[in-house]
């Protein structure tokens, strides 16, 4: 039960004199939702970028599923089973909603490189059905033929989530999945994430909205100025005076 899926060990990252991460240690356990919170500039996004291969740590290593992934390319890390939702939705804006999801499904099925130059997309019925099922699940099915760029901001985020979910990742990283969403959209997203949680998918979630954090997280890590200042189950974090001071006090509306 307590298998460690992602193990961040002694990671340091320095940006031209600014210590973005200092000696960060993090163990993400299988099937859990792990929230990383902290004030702006605490190094949360940097931590995520180190995990997906966008940034290389100065020292330390990241191990996923028993294998060191530091130094690997982003597409290799994804193929290993890590999917990521970005802070600003990264989608294929020129493609239809359905094609967005199909690209992700093809990447999962065919690996990082497989041309299939002479197969017709129409004959990829299995991929298409899978895409429709995921879109249905996230309430995007009726927009499937729309261009992704014409979706609302909340739907774009949901589409990005759909692209990650269709890959059935072992670990899902979410960078502020509800930022800029209305309360209604936020609650919908929470519902979706809760449903995913029931399926046992491991998640790391970075979030400012405490409502989201406390409704989803099994474990919370608090970052401030690149260092972990507290760690524990939600009830404990809520009562921790150090955290109150560094973060919660100011941000609690």
């Amino acid at each position: 039960m307590d298998t460690v899926v992602l193990d961040v060990a002694d990671v340091n990252k320095n940006f031209a004199g600014l210590q973005a991460l200092s000696n960060v240690n993090l163990k993400i356990k299988e099937g859990k939702t792990h929230a990383v919170i902290g004030p702006n500039g605490a190094g949360k996004s940097t931590l995520l970028n180190v995990c997906v291969g966008r940034l290389q740590p100065d020292t330390g290593s990241v191990t996923f599923d028993g294998e060191i992934i530091t130094g690997k390319k982003p597409y290799e890390i994804n193929q290993a089973g890590v999917a990521r939702v970005f802070q600003t939705p990264e989608i294929f804006a020129d493609l239809s909603v359905e094609h967005n999801v199909m690209v992700a499904a093809l990447a999962k099925r065919d690996g990082s490189f497989h041309p299939h130059a002479f197969r017709n997309l129409v004959s990829e019925t299995a991929i298409h059905d899978e895409a429709l099922a995921v879109l249905e699940d996230l309430g995007l099915k009726r927009m499937r033929e729309m261009k992704a760029e014409s979706l609302s901001r909340g739907d774009k985020r949901r589409l990005e989530l759909a692209m990650c979910l269709i890959q059935h990742p072992r670990l899902l990283l979410l960078d502020e999945p509800t930022a800029g969403m209305s309360r209604h959209d936020t609650n919908q997203t929470i519902d979706v994430l809760k449903r995913i949680k029931e399926r046992g998918m491991t998640k790391v979630i970075i979030e400012h909205d405490m409502h989201v954090v406390f409704s989803l997280a099994d474990w919370i890590t608090v970052l401030a100025q690149g260092a972990i200042i507290a760690e524990g189950p939600p009830e404990e974090i809520r009562g921790n005076p150090k955290v109150q001071e560094a973060y919660l006090g100011g941000a609690h509306e």
Binding site: Y75, I91, V103, L106, L121
Partner: peptide, 20 residues
């Protein structure tokens, strides 16, 4: 083809494709 779709995805957002 799926190949053509991936090429169009490159035009649209190469970054996303890498993380996909």
């Amino acid at each position: 083809s799926p190949f053509g779709l991936k090429l169009r995805a490159i035009k649209s957002n190469q970054n996303r494709l890498n993380y996909t």
